[in-house]
């Protein structure tokens, strides 16, 4: 996913501009003309300058650099699917872990990812269950990390051996 430098530069420059615009609204600290907007403004200006430099470079290289050069994987549906799957799995966890719990999410995500990558679903199932149990035991029971219980909440007492 190699974009032409001009496009990268444009994104960076726009980010810089947006930061400068936002930082303008920040108040000053007491007694001094500096405040929470000072550093972001400098960063915004820096990003804008770097962005413009990239745009110039990108335009001068436009003959050799296409606007977007996708990797070979983009022509393989299997790999595009794999790319999306990693993101979807993380998004799934972020959205639902609090409700359905870490354990179920962990089994599901491992199953889907390992299954997709190896193509052997039955083996993926037992690996994902074993790995999830190990993680649950090590982090929740031993190290007391409060991973969300989700639907298992009313029964959380049963699974804690302390």
């Amino acid at each position: 996913m190699k974009f032409n430098d001009a496009i990268v530069g444009l994104v960076v420059a726009l980010l810089g501009a947006a930061v400068i615009a936002q930082a303008g609204y920040f108040p000053k600290a007491r007694h001094i003309p500096y405040g929470p907007g000072f550093l972001p403004t400098i960063l915004g200006v820096g990003l804008a300058i770097c962005g413009v430099l990239l745009i110039v470079r990108g335009i001068s290289e436009r003959r050799t650099q296409p606007l977007l050069k996708l990797g070979e994987w983009s022509r393989s549906p299997r790999h595009v699917f794999g790319f999306a799957l990693v993101l979807v799995c993380l998004a799934f966890y972020a959205l639902f872990a609090d409700d359905i719990g870490h354990f179920a999410c962990s089994v599901l995500i491992l199953l889907v990812l390992i299954g997709h990558l190896t193509g052997r679903w039955l083996r993926a199932l037992w690996i994902s269950i074993l790995a999830s149990i190990a993680i649950q035991f090590f982090f929740v029971d031993l190290l007391l990390v409060p991973l969300p219980w989700g639907v298992l909440e009313p029964y959380s007492g049963w699974f804690v051996w302390r």
């Binding site: 179920a104 199953l111 299954g115 639907v151 298992l152 029964y155």
Partner: peptide, 21 residues
């Protein structure tokens, strides 16, 4: 296979959710 697992998980969730506290 994937759909099967999903429905299984949903079923389990339902069962746990319905259990009266």
């Amino acid at each position: 296979m994937r759909r099967h697992i999903l429905s299984l998980a949903a079923g389990a969730a339902l069962m746990f959710g319905l259990a009266p506290a």
